[in-house]
Design a protein around this nucleic acid. Structure first.
Lengths: 232, 232
DNA sequence: CGATTAATTGATACTTCTCAAATCCTGTGG
DNA sequence: CCACAGGATTTGAGAAGTATCAATTAATCG
């Protein structure tokens, strides 16, 4: 893999997990890390494996998913600029519980396990930040559990569309700035591909979203919130 | 609330989250904590509130759940001896995302927020232990998400019965050592109470479990594993 | 021993899945 | 640039899985 020039900057990236570290610590990390890139569709970490380090995404979009029965993917969440991949299993000392695959060409830093733990041990504040992060994720996971258990497919689809918008934003034409197949959307919503397709066209008819090919635009956010039973 | 005598011991409880602390740190915690108890059915922390401290369960059983639409509970997980309640929202600095209610009379230590953070800051190893714990929970949550999204109700019920057995064990007669209503089981499985009832009686007919009143005994663990698609 | 709550059963309606077939895209090689 | 192969999307029809509602029986608690 090439070392892209911009990777020099990735530790000080505004939104990076490492952004609050002291300059000294960042310098040290810079020496310890290597830069890697992944093509669209490439697997970054694989469920069941033992992790040897963490990836910090500099630029790109990644899906995190587990394999369910019948080999069907269940997308747990998405990971994008500044966020970490693989820290969960490293810290809990377990096998990797979810695979990660690049949704588009992605650039990342790779930080070996030993270096990662060194940074944690020498920077209690960073350790606390990781703790805060994982506890936040835990809350999000709880919400997802409740949605899956209690909402119907249309409600969940509306919720996911809002999550996609909040996570990836919109391009200049107003479309969600993420390219997913209908199947991937279904794998996040927890339903069959055909059901997603039917409900997307239903939401279109109702005027809450629009779409061109696989690209989707949210046109009435508050309507989707109502459908999804989100009151925030 | 009275201060039960046995609470003196709870920090050194074999399985306590705090068990690895130095004696000095434990002594300090002993001065900072207070002892509380909850009757069966009593709410310990309430979704949406701002937490002021954490509870460490000394003895008892607690359900952690969020309110879904229509006021239906979704049980996220159970908490028992040695485990913490409320640490997630304290550490992520968010509102409490899940309520906790005692399933039976429960004794706990209450550690105020400031004391909890003091212990974390002064004991990096403890901080790392919390990190490990929350990352483990994150993995469990991921599994639950995949189950809810991909397994049918019978598969999920089988899985939950196995989880209950692993979490709470069996009494001398072989029944699960936890008393839940059918509705609570349904709120964990993510289905209607009547569906749980029908499937429990189906599993009974098939000889994999037995039951007397509300008490349930797992009689064929590996059959349940097969039904639940668990291959471990 | 009531009175209340929980558990059970049956009938029916609704949601969602599955399978099959048709159409639409997209990237590629000629 | 065009045609084509292969995958993705869409639509329809029917089956399966679950939920809901109502009525009955069982268990529990003061």
């Amino acid at each position: 893999m090439e070392t892209p020039h911009h990777c020099q900057m990735c530790l000080s990236h505004q939104k990076s997990t490492f952004s609050d570290l002291s300059n000294d610590a960042k310098d040290e990390l810079s020496r310890l890390k290597t830069c890697v890139s992944f093509r669209k569709g490439q697997v970054i970490i694989h469920e069941g494996a033992r992790p040897q380090g963490v990836y910090c995404i500099h630029r790109g979009k990644v899906k995190l998913y587990t394999m369910g029965t019948e080999g069907k993917e269940q997308i747990i969440r998405f990971i994008t600029n500044g966020e970490l991949i693989g820290y969960r299993s490293l810290l809990s000392d377990e096998a990797i519980s979810a695979s990660a695959t690049a949704l588009e060409d992605t650039f990342a830093c790779y930080i070996p396990k030993s270096s990662f733990f060194k940074v944690i041990e020498e920077n209690p504040k960073f350790s606390l930040k990781l703790l805060k992060m994982s506890c936040h994720e835990l809350g999000e996971a709880g919400k997802m559990i409740t949605s899956l258990a209690q909402k119907n497919v249309k409600e969940r689809l509306a919720e996911i569309l809002l999550i996609l918008r909040a996570t990836f934003g919109e391009d200049e034409e107003g479309y969600l700035d993420i390219s997913l197949t209908r199947e991937e959307i279904a794998n996040m919503v927890g339903t069959a591909t055909e059901s997603v397709i039917r409900l997307i066209s239903e939401l279109k008819k109702e005027g809450y979203i629009s779409s061109k090919g696989k690209r989707i635009a949210v046109s009435d956010r508050s309507a989707l919130q109502q459908i999804a039973n989100i009151f925030e």
